[in-house]
């Protein structure tokens, strides 16, 4: 039982350069794993993802980033939409962001909460799952269709 959500604002080109800013980056010398800590801000095009800590997962042949594992309170924001959760995993190549842990999605006037939100940045759609609850102001025109079973 999930609610599909239109994410008009979040649609964007995932081949744009990704910029990661943080207070600190620690790189383990043995295996080269890299972890950004201290109000980390990941920016790509219009999208901004801020988190307490972001761990980088490299691609198979190295030299490329496969996934960004964000944790410690994640906020994904775009022009009109914002989503918050405890953790998130952003796979850059496929442009898929999986947010888990009391997810709260606000679109203009309406808000949607659940346990897991899977956003496809390329298509600009999202699927919210797990105890989905929604609040929307009757009467006002709701930016982007938000419905729930």
């Amino acid at each position: 039982q999930g609610a599909t959500v239109a994410f008009g604002g979040l649609q964007q080109d995932t081949s744009l350069p990704v910029e990661i800013q943080a207070d600190q980056l620690a790189v383990n010398q043995a295996d080269g794993s890299a972890t950004f800590t201290g109000n980390v801000l990941v920016g790509q095009g219009e999208m901004r993802l801020s988190a307490g800590e972001v761990r980088v997962e490299y691609g198979p042949e190295g030299g490329s980033i496969e996934r960004l594992h964000a944790s410690g309170g994640v906020t994904l924001a775009n022009k009109a939409e914002a989503a918050e959760s405890v953790e998130a995993v952003y796979t850059i190549a496929s442009g898929q962001v999986v947010m888990t842990g009391d997810v709260l999605l606000t679109q203009g006037q309406s808000a949607l909460s659940g346990q897991k939100l899977v956003i496809d940045l390329k298509a600009g759609t999202g699927v919210m799952e797990g105890r989905v609850q929604t609040v929307f102001q009757p009467g006002g025109s709701v930016g982007g269709g938000a419905g729930s079973e």
């Binding site: 350069p17 910029e19 800013q21 943080a22 207070d23 600190q24 980056l25 383990n28 950004f36 980033i65």
Partner: peptide, 11 residues
């Protein structure tokens, strides 16, 4: 290997 104050990476 620790990088500190205003770390900025462009990928």
């Amino acid at each position: 290997l620790l990088f500190q104050d205003r770390v900025k990476l462009i990928y």
